[in-house]
Design a protein around this nucleic acid. Structure first.
Lengths: 343, 343
DNA sequence: AGAGCCAATGTAAGCGCTTACATTGATCTC
DNA sequence: GAGATCAATGTAAGCGCTTACATTGGCTCT
């Protein structure tokens, strides 16, 4: 075995054919006669040949990669979406480049640059809220992209996600239907986060649409961490009169709130109802089970991949799929004590 | 603006220098005079030039990517490790290629091939249990790798992780010290999973080393899903006499077990103690808090990246770091009722 | 049997960059 | 002030593939 890496030419000599034929055998096997192919395969095996990635990319102008730029893998909602995204790419022989932003729009632009510089043939981004420069840059590159975790009926962008505002509106209605009137929200940080913003908007709108004394007593923004949810609960609960229900921007915040509520000797849902968002594994694990909104994470990742692949191969992608969320009633939501029977 | 993408040559003409100088300005700026650099930058901006990835790779033989092949992103323990891994790579200007195996060793080999074919300069793999062919293949490629989530004092491999067996041994000792003698284990599936195997071994050994009537009543293997943990609990609890403590292969299984225990009207930890492993967010969110073993997920990802980068740049990497686990006492472990005071 | 066709293969021109080596002035040294 | 030194830049040879186009020879068709 030689030290130098085998090249196409080496394989060609060994197999007694031209390098073009080798290339064809590799990229488009049925253009090559079966027996030639056999010889070639033998030669490849003997030489331990692996195509040179750079040369292949340079000559063909295809990298076989797409990129995903997401806030963080540490949040299950992104991790499992990306997981599904990757699975579909994999089925199509595409490899995934990944970069994270920690919710920073500038870092997102930076990462987009990175991935495009690495030859990503398409891009998955999270949400629709970003400086116009970012999308501009992507478009100048002529690389298609899809936006995940959001839905925008108005926009001409390809969005694969669900209507966060509508889902939050719906969830809030359920809370109101239980009889709650004094509601607080623990929201994710809304700056540069249209999903958090939309959820907050949905809650706001549902409450004001409802009227009849329903009020959003407070909105506390917090980072998506258990500890932050706990701290935010203190603030959210501190109004007089207390809220009877707290709607949280996601399940992690909700779980944090639950911990703190229990800490403060409050019964859930007796003294305070809590509603989450996302339905990650956590929601079923806590006790009582967390009432929340299920979002189709995997389905979203899958469809995002399909849309992106379609765009890459130049097909007009199917119209934005509308993914449905589902309100999941568990134990943390119940009618408020003091209002029972008052209707 | 022309339709065709600008190349180095275009920029060179525009800036009135040779293409070599542009290349240098890009890759090794202080080899170029400041004013020349300024002209070049202007030209680049005007033309919207981006280097061609393939050409760069072909000419320089460097892709600036590293690959990670992991079981799944859906499990927080991998997701947050990879997150940290990616952050360090990012600081070093390296981009991450990601592929998942769903715990299938054959798929792992396939993904390793994929990533190497995409020019990964280094590889992160999970655990040490795999067919020799896989590592053989990697070595033939001359690409360095590190194994994460495991520790192997004996091996010549670079492992970045913790001693799962020792951590399990220690946790089991704590359980024994609380007075438990009838212990059951809900283990992850051990086939092709040395981490699960090691944890099981640690539990086994601790119990047999202890003697004095301590017994491992049963071992139930289950996939790492909440639901599977719940189902496994039924089996694990069904022995007569019942176990007084159940040690779980990870926190997800433990949380599933907790759900089922509550379902069956059992008090935790009054009727049954439960211990988890990993200390993911879930462990603090459940009630009572899950007693578990904290593993330094992020630290591991970080160090794995550092080791890998060191190997890639040809340095002799620092010796395998020994990462410490920590037993986290929370509410799900307490002395067994019937043994209180009996010593 | 000759024209026409087609599948299989060969020929060779790049793809756009990096980098070893060559060149050029300017600055320094004694 | 001549030679040495050095920073800055230019020249040009690839890197290892893909692919448009050319060639070949065996078939079919009439």
């Amino acid at each position: 075995m030689s030290t130098a890496k085998a090249t196409l030419k080496d394989v060609a000599e060994r197999a007694g054919v031209s390098s073009a034929t080798i290339s064809r055998a590799l990229n488009d096997p049925d253009k090559v006669a079966a027996d030639t192919r056999a010889k070639i395969n033998a030669a490849i095996l003997e030489l331990g040949y692996t195509p040179n990635f750079g040369a292949r990319v340079l000559a063909s102008n295809r990298t076989g990669t797409v990129g995903a730029v997401i806030p963080t893998l540490s949040n299950a909602i992104f991790a499992s979406g990306v997981q599904a995204f990757q699975e579909v790419l994999d089925e199509n022989g595409i490899t995934l480049l990944i970069a994270t932003t920690d919710f920073d729009p500038e870092k997102e632009l930076y990462q987009v640059r990175q991935l495009l510089a690495h030859g990503a043939a398409g891009l998955l981004l999270v949400g629709a809220d970003r400086p116009w420069t970012t999308l501009d840059f992507i478009e100048k590159h002529g690389v298609p992209h899809v936006l995940g975790w959001c839905a925008h009926a108005d926009s001409d962008q390809t969005c694969v996600g669900f209507d966060n505002a509508a889902a939050a509106y719906d969830a809030t209605q359920r809370v109101l239907m239980q009889g709650h009137r004094r509601i607080a929200m623990i929201s994710g940080e809304c700056a540069s986060n249209d999903r958090a913003q939309a959820r907050l908007d949905g809650v706001r709108r549902a409450i004001s649409d409802h009227g009849r004394g329903a009020a959003l007593l407070s909105v506390t923004e917090a980072k998506y961490l258990l500890q932050m949810g706990a701290e935010a609960f203190v603030t959210a609960y501190s109004t007089r009169p207390h809220p009877t229900a707290i709607i949280c921007g996601n399940d992690v915040l909700a779980a944090g709130a639950m911990i703190q509520a229990r800490e403060m000797g409050l019964d859930i849902p007796g003294d305070i109802s809590i509603v989450g968002f996302d339905d990650i594994g956590l929601a079923r694990a806590v006790h009582p089970g967390l009432t929340t909104v299920r979002v189709p994470q995997s389905e979203m990742g899958r469809q995002a991949a399909e849309q992106l692949l379609a765009k890459i191969s130049g097909e007009t992608p199917p119209p934005n799929p509308e993914l449905q969320t589902e309100f999941i009633m568990r134990g943390t939501l119940a009618p408020p004590k003091q209002d029972i029977g008052l209707r």
